[in-house]
């Protein structure tokens, strides 16, 4: 049975503070440390109660303004393009799987059947995940144009005039040992990709990587959230699309921190893993 936060007075104090007034950087660190000591099942109870009370007292009486709705719909389309279709490409794993399939093909009959069975099973699993969508799509003639991979999209973006590229530099954090890679960012399209090789795998239930973009016009104190991502244990290159939450006027530096699952709004930078300063000019 999971322990309850109610048995730890300081934890309750911090959780109520988070739910009602927000936490400062040191309180955030302390809360993360306390939450990391046990697998609590009720750590969000105060935020949920506060939300229920807000719903009880806040009438839903104002319709969403039309211009804001339009902006949100555009935002949804951009989000779908960058996230829903292909959240993270583990190119190393894909290459390894392809190589394995190719080398397995001329092997013994039993092994070949097993390989085909594995491929068929993975196709069925993929189909099951998307079946609800397929069932609701209007039936139109299908034109089989393969979607560009993240690697191809990154290459295309890098070829665009005006796009910028910056190399990752590791900090002393253990997760950054032997990391190489870069950032490609197109200021006009407000889109880009980060690429890593050698970044330590994370357990998404315990922590996630979070990307930050330092904008010269906003100051160093409040970098813009560029999205959370995971690194699988299979190794190889990992490419992740950048999802800047706010418009970036003048990118000065990109950085990666390790945060709690889901990411944070303001990082205490307790685990700053990588930085990629953008060269002037």
């Amino acid at each position: 049975m999971s322990p309850s936060v109610m048995n730890n007075e300081r934890l309750v104090e911090l959780l109520v503070q988070r739910a009602t007034d927000g936490l400062n950087a040191s309180e955030r660190v302390e809360l993360n440390r306390l939450l990391g000591q046990e697998q609590y099942s009720d750590s969000e109870q105060f935020e949920q109660t506060a939300a229920a009370l807000l719903l009880a007292g806040c009438p839903e009486d104002e319709p969403l303004p039309d211009d804001l709705r339009e902006r949100l719909l555009n935002q949804a389309d951009a989000f779908a393009t960058q996230n829903v279709a292909s959240p993270v490409a583990d190119l190393g794993a894909i290459r390894a799987q392809r190589a394995q399939e190719i080398s397995a093909a001329p092997a013994r009959g039993g092994g070949s059947k097993l390989a085909w069975f594995a491929v068929a099973a993975s196709l069925l699993i993929a189909l099951a995940g998307w079946w609800p969508r397929l069932m609701n799509e209007p039936t139109e003639p299908q034109v089989n144009i393969p979607e560009p991979t993240l690697e191809q999209r990154r290459d295309q973006l890098m070829a665009q005039a005006g796009s910028i590229r910056a190399d990752w530099k590791g900090t002393e954090d253990a997760a950054a040992a032997n990391v190489t890679g870069d950032v490609v960012w197109d200021p006009r399209a407000q889109t880009g990709y980060v690429r890593f090789h050698g970044l330590a795998a994370n357990n998404p239930k315990q922590s996630q990587y979070q990307l930050w973009i330092f904008d010269k016009t906003r100051g160093d104190q409040y970098p813009v959230d560029g999205g959370v991502f995971d690194v699988p244990a299979s190794g190889g290159d990992v490419i992740v699309p950048i999802l800047a939450k706010l418009p970036i006027s003048d990118a000065a530096m990109f950085a990666v921190t390790i945060e709690r699952p889901g990411g944070v709004v303001v990082s205490d930078r307790g685990r700053l893993v990588l930085v990629a300063p953008v060269s002037a000019g």
């Binding site: 104002e62 709705r69 949804a76 829903v84 969508r133 609701n136």
Partner: peptide
């Protein structure tokens, strides 16, 4: 969460007024 991109737009229409009011 399952990857249905149309649900993003539905989310706006279903909960836009709620989020705006809050």
């Amino acid at each position: 969460a399952q990857g249905d991109s149309r649900a993003l737009r539905e989310c706006i229409d279903q909960f836009g007024s709620l989020v705006w009011s809050i």
